[in-house]
Amino acid sequence: MDVQSQAPHIFDEETLIALYDDHSDSIYRYAFRSLGEANLAEDCVADVFTRFLERVATGKALTGNLRAYLYRVAHNWIVDYYRQEKPEADLEAQPLPARNANPEKHLSEKENQAHLRQALLALPEDQRLVIELRVMEKWPYEAVADVLGKSVEASRALQYRALKKLRQSFNLQWM
């Protein structure tokens, strides 16, 4: 459910539960990809929606796309987490599920994935969202454009820019 510029009074009980049902899984997946750990991702989801409730309680209307707002809160939570937990060490320490038996290759994959996570977190918000929704979640461009409040063409361009930045982040190291 996308709610734009909604006044808080529309958030009745049913709506609040529906919002959670609609968005919690995708926020979880985003958190897991960034954190690499299931329990931490659950904590992130819980805190994101608690912050959302706190925001609603202030009585200020939410502006922009709700999904984008939730991703933004999740992103801030993740960045805060790494800030407190020494990012390099933690990013390296969180393995992803699919692993290769070759130790040297495994180490390289781990490094690359850790680097990619950092690079993704460093992207501007709209570029990060395009990668998350379009590349990771396989949404059609039209839906991504809707969340971003941009045209399909602009969303394509954002993806192009984001991928270019990610490639460059690796190639800077190579150079």
């Binding site: 899984d25 992803l96 599920p97 994959e109 990771m136 979640e137």
Partner: peptide, 14 residues
């Protein structure tokens, strides 16, 4: 890069 992103997009069942 596509391969890396594809790996990263894999999330185990919640």
């Amino acid at each position: 890069l596509e391969g890396l992103l594809a790996e990263l997009s894999q999330v185990p069942q919640r």
